[in-house]
Simulated assay, not measured.
Amino acid sequence: MKKIKWLVLLAFFALAGCANYSGDNGVENRWRSVDAPVWEVGKTSEQEVVDVLGPPSQLINLQDQTAYYYLREHRAGKALVLLLYNWGYQKLTYDRAVFFFDAQGTLTKYSYSPEALPYDEAD
């Protein structure tokens, strides 16, 4: 009988697992780079932004303006998988930049999200 209890306990732990994971999606957040230029409202062009940041995650056409939306997502989580009980946790962090251009392609305003991910040149 003791052997059966130990086998059941051993099988319970053999079927259990833990996981830690993380990952990134979206464009590189070059707007957080120390080398990122200072954007000048009324002077910076669409092409200058694209040359530095690359293509946007989303291009939004407004009536007389265009918005370039850049998004970087980071996720990190932990999980515990047991025979009778599972637990998981995931945290998502979004880093965003939005640039608005007039019909001539000149920057009218821009904004970064207050939630920031560190820029990593290794990406």
Rank of each mutant, 00 (worst) to 15 (best):
N25C: 05
L15K: 12
F99S: 01
G23L: 10
A79R: 02
T44Q: 08
G54A: 04
V52A: 14
Y68E: 00
A116H: 10
G42R: 14
D51Q: 13
I60S: 05
E121D: 03
F101A: 00
L9F: 13
N61T: 10
M1S: 15
F12Y: 01
N29C: 05
Q58H: 13
V49Q: 03
T106I: 09
Q63T: 10
R72M: 03
Y69T: 07
Y112E: 04
L107I: 01
F100Q: 12
L107W: 07
K5E: 09
T66A: 01
C18L: 14
D102L: 03
T44N: 10
R96Y: 12
R32I: 04
A19C: 11
E115I: 10
F13G: 03
Y68W: 02
E40G: 08
E73R: 11
S57I: 03
D123A: 06
F99C: 01
V49W: 04
Y85A: 01
Y89C: 06
G23T: 07
S111W: 09
I60P: 00
P56G: 04
E28H: 11
A76N: 12
K78E: 10
D51S: 13
L15N: 15
A11H: 05
R30D: 10
G26F: 12
A79I: 04
V8S: 08
S57Q: 05
W6C: 11
V27R: 11
G54F: 03
Y68L: 03
A16G: 07
R30N: 09
L117T: 01
V27P: 02
G88F: 09
N20R: 12
Y69L: 14
F12E: 00
Y68D: 00
N20D: 12
L117R: 01
F12G: 02
Q58S: 14
Q63S: 11
V81F: 08
S113R: 01
F13R: 05
Y85N: 02
L53M: 09
G17E: 07
F99P: 02
Y89V: 06
V8N: 08
Y68C: 00
P114K: 11
D64G: 07
V49C: 06
M1D: 13
A97C: 01
W6A: 13
Y112C: 00
P37K: 07
A79N: 01
F101I: 02
G23W: 09
V50S: 04
E73I: 14
S22E: 15
L80I: 11
F101K: 00
Q104W: 04
S33Q: 06
Y110I: 00
T93D: 02
K109R: 15
R96E: 13
S22P: 05
S113E: 06
D95C: 08
G77C: 00
V34S: 14
P114Y: 11
K3F: 15
S45R: 13
K2F: 15
V52Q: 12
G105Y: 10
G26Y: 13
Y69Q: 08
W6Q: 13
D102S: 02
E28T: 10
T106Q: 03
S22T: 07
Y110K: 01
N20F: 14
W6N: 14
G17I: 02
E115A: 09
V98A: 05
Y110M: 02
Y110E: 02
Q47A: 14
Q90G: 04
